[in-house]
């Protein structure tokens, strides 16, 4: 049984212990919540979402320049 959640930002994949909030996971990865949008199964989710084992969260970077 899987106990981790996969978080993807650009080409990077991170395995995070399930059961914590997305906000706590972003903190562990040193990612500012303001700089990303969080997507699960095509739906946007808020940072209070509890991470479930085996699921994948995709982070979309929001900062653009040029």
């Amino acid at each position: 049984m899987e106990y981790t959640t996969t978080i993807i930002l650009r080409d990077q994949k991170y395995e995070i212990k399930a059961g914590m909030t997305l906000l706590a996971a972003l903190g562990k990865l040193d990612i500012l919540p303001e700089s990303v949008i969080c997507v699960r199964d095509g739906d946007l989710i808020t940072e209070d979402t509890i991470l479930k084992p085996g699921e994948t969260i995709k982070l979309v970077s929001v900062i653009s320049g040029g």
């Binding site: 303001e34 700089s35 990303v36 949008i37 997507v39 946007l44 979309v60 929001v62 900062i63 653009s64």
Partner: peptide, 11 residues
């Protein structure tokens, strides 16, 4: 905020 515009475009 930039984050709101990204959310709008995705949604």
């Amino acid at each position: 905020y930039e984050r709101e515009m990204a959310a709008y475009s995705l949604l």
